[in-house]
């Protein structure tokens, strides 16, 4: 009986641990729903969804990058790059061609990152840091320092269409994001290719020995990261009907924070797209509530930092604890308990 209880308690803790992002989301959402003025209405919730769209899309690829145990610091500039390419080419080739080109551009940047990481074996932190600088320069050069806007009726039409709520909480852009999240989440969990990414991140040596082409998966992860960043960027730019030269800059730190808060570990092999998505939603609900309370960005930055720090500390502390008890022998623990009981019995 006793043993069962201990097991249940441990199970409870591990279940809570695994689902902590959902609980965090629930708590923050409930708090805002109860106390934040004008929070619970269709319009505001749709606003949250709309704002979340960019970072949620970008975070799909970034989660994949963390799952394979790498880092991609260039996602922020890829967002901008895709936006600039997509909108800049629209005049000459139309959206029908410029949007795929923009997405492809993101993919190409990811491909270069991936090849440098997988084949040239340079640390991804360095490759993507360098790529960030290169891309920023490229963006400024091809635009001549000029943001791009599309103030034509067809551009406005697409922009309006993307932003229009056709169902509570859903706009086409949000729907695209959600579809991508569902596809990626399902693919990562249920397909062999998806599981292989985890294998590569969990132990690339094992993966390679199991006949998984780790280089190809590493490159693929960077390409997907580039693609999702580009998709996020171009959709965002189309809805804004403009591409500014730093529109993606704030996404980098945001996406890193959200992915970590969502429970994906920097060490690789752990985490999931859906959890990251919920983490993005959580942050977005929090930020939205802060604005509704009339509080400033300083509160927002501070709270985001505290939550992130708490999550990291919690995770570090659990693995610190786990290391302490790793290898404990159950029969000896039982023996200890028997001794204690005996001692208690004899003293009473």
């Amino acid at each position: 009986m006793r043993k069962l209880q201990i097991k249940d308690k441990q199970q409870l803790i591990s279940t809570i641990d695994k689902n902590r992002i959902f609980i965090l989301f629930g708590v923050i959402f409930l708090f805002m729903a109860l106390f934040a003025p004008r929070f619970m209405n269709v319009f505001n919730l749709t606003t949250i969804m709309r704002t979340m769209s960019l970072n949620a899309t970008v975070a799909i690829g970034f989660t994949l990058i963390l799952v394979i145990g790498q880092l991609d610091l260039s996602i922020g500039t890829i967002i901008t790059f895709a936006a600039v390419v997509g909108l800049g080419l629209k005049e000459s080739v139309g959206f029908g061609l410029s949007v795929p080109l923009a997405v492809a551009a993101g993919g190409v940047v990811g491909l270069i990152n991936g090849i440098l990481v997988a084949k040239a074996k340079i640390n991804s932190f360095i490759v993507t840091l360098g790529m960030m600088t290169v891309l920023q320069g490229t963006i400024y050069t091809i635009t001549g320092g000029n943001s791009i806007s599309l103030s034509t009726p067809d551009a406005f039409a697409i922009s309006d269409w993307l932003a229009e709520m056709f169902f509570p909480l859903l706009t086409p852009r949000v729907l695209i994001t959600i579809i991508l999240v569902i596809l990626a989440s399902f693919g990562m969990r249920r397909t062999r290719i998806g599981r292989n990414f985890y294998m590569v991140g969990g132990n690339s040596q094992t993966a390679w020995l199991a006949g998984i082409d780790t280089d190809r998966y590493t490159i693929a992860a960077f390409v997907i990261s580039g693609l999702t960043a580009a998709v996020g960027g171009i959709l965002f730019a189309m809805e804004s009907a403009a591409a500014t030269l730093n529109m993606g800059n704030s996404s980098l730190m945001y996406v890193i924070s959200a992915t970590i808060i969502g429970g994906t570990s920097m060490a690789g092999g752990k985490g999931g797209v859906f959890k990251t998505f919920v983490a993005v939603l959580t942050l977005e609900v929090l930020y939205n509530g802060i604005i509704l309370f009339g509080l400033g960005n300083e509160v927002k930055i501070f709270l985001a930092g505290v939550i992130l720090a708490a999550v990291i500390l919690y995770e570090a502390y659990t693995s610190y604890r786990r290391e302490k008890v790793l290898g404990q022998r159950p029969e000896l623990m039982k023996e200890l308990e028997r001794d204690r009981e005996a001692a208690a019995a004899s003293s009473s």
């Binding site: 880092l71 924070s257 992130l308 720090a309 990291i312 500390l313 570090a316």
Partner: peptide, 14 residues
């Protein structure tokens, strides 16, 4: 506690 240096210092900077 062996927190990951990149994200921990990021959180501290926030």
């Amino acid at each position: 506690f062996k927190a990951n240096p990149i994200i921990w210092t990021l959180a501290v900077s926030y």
